[in-house]
Amino acid sequence: MKNHSVSPVALASSLWQHRNLIRDLARRDAIGRYKGSFLGIIWSLITPLFMLAIYTFVFSHIFKARWGATGSDSKTEFAIILFAGLIVFNLFSECISRAPGIILGNVNFVKKVVFPLEILPCVNLLSALFHASISIAVLLVFEFLIKGAVPVSIWMIPIVLMPLFLLILGASWWLAATGVFLRDIGQTVGILMTGLMFVSPIFFPSSALPENWKILAQLNPLALPIEQARQVMVWGTAIDWTQWALYTGVASVIAWAGFAWFQKTRKGFADVL
């Protein structure tokens, strides 16, 4: 039986070697989910805009929410801030929610000895990133129409999100492998994503949390990416590079650990499936 290396070098080599396959599968996945629908890929615009409208109406009109203690009463500003947070959360949620079923939904690939199963979480991430990019474009257009300009710091968004990509991949490799042997994990992840949405700084800034609850923000894997993405996409301010570096270090370890678990357990996929 082929021995699958768990080293970071082997991981980087495999992803680079199969980069064209990853791109093609991601394109097929991103476009394929709308195949046969009347509006097609336009749904990738309609869905986030609809959710944005609902959340903005509920929190700004019904609950009269403002951003922070001295927040503006502007409904459009609240919508921009809210949308920026939702983009990051939806990217994370889409990848993690689909991760437990990645191998289960591609049994035909498992039977092919030469197919690089480790690229499937990357395909999932790229597909989700496609939809996130559309949402970011919508946000920038909305910002330009409302404010007359977009933050110069927007170019930093790939840097801000890079550590989150590592975290997503690590968690996806672990969930994809574990989901083969423990089928209930898919339902568990769905519940956790719902809870995570309401404890993440999407509808409120982390500074609004009481002192004894701020530990939640420090433990929440989405808190820093959401707030830093909001800094470069909305506020136009620099990010905290120390926090970014620490997050990147932890995310890198998680990515490697998830990949190692995937490689160690993949030899049993065919037996279970």
Rank of each mutant, 00 (worst) to 15 (best):
M1D: 08
H4G: 00
H4P: 00
H4S: 00
V6F: 02
L11R: 06
S13W: 09
S14L: 13
L15S: 10
R23M: 11
D29T: 12
G32T: 14
Y34E: 06
G36K: 12
S37G: 02
L39N: 06
L39D: 07
I41L: 14
I42C: 08
H61I: 06
I62M: 09
K64H: 14
A65G: 00
A65Q: 09
R66E: 13
W67A: 06
A69S: 08
K75M: 09
T76K: 08
F78P: 01
I80H: 14
I81W: 13
L82A: 04
L82N: 13
F83H: 11
L86W: 02
V88E: 01
V88G: 01
F89K: 00
L91H: 03
F92G: 01
P100M: 13
I103R: 07
L104C: 08
F109W: 13
F109P: 10
V110G: 07
L117I: 15
E118M: 07
L120T: 08
N124D: 07
L125S: 01
L125T: 03
L126W: 09
H131D: 11
S135R: 10
A137M: 14
A137E: 07
L140Y: 08
V141N: 09
F142V: 02
E143M: 14
K147E: 12
G148M: 09
G148E: 10
A149C: 12
V150A: 06
P151G: 04
S153H: 15
S153Y: 12
I154M: 13
M156I: 07
I159Y: 14
V160E: 02
V160D: 03
P163S: 05
L164T: 06
F165E: 02
F165K: 00
L169D: 01
W173V: 01
W174Q: 04
L175R: 03
G179C: 13
Q187G: 12
Q187M: 10
L192T: 14
G195L: 08
F198W: 14
P201H: 02
F204P: 10
F204A: 07
S206M: 11
S207R: 01
W213T: 05
K214E: 14
L216E: 08
A217P: 04
A223E: 01
P225C: 03
I226H: 03
Q228S: 09
A229L: 01
Q231E: 14
V232S: 10
V232R: 04
V232Q: 12
M233A: 12
W235E: 15
W235V: 11
W235N: 14
W235G: 09
W241L: 11
L246Q: 10
G249A: 15
G249N: 01
V250A: 15
V253A: 12
I254A: 10
A255I: 03
W256H: 05
F259V: 02
Q263N: 15
K264M: 05
R266E: 14
A270W: 11
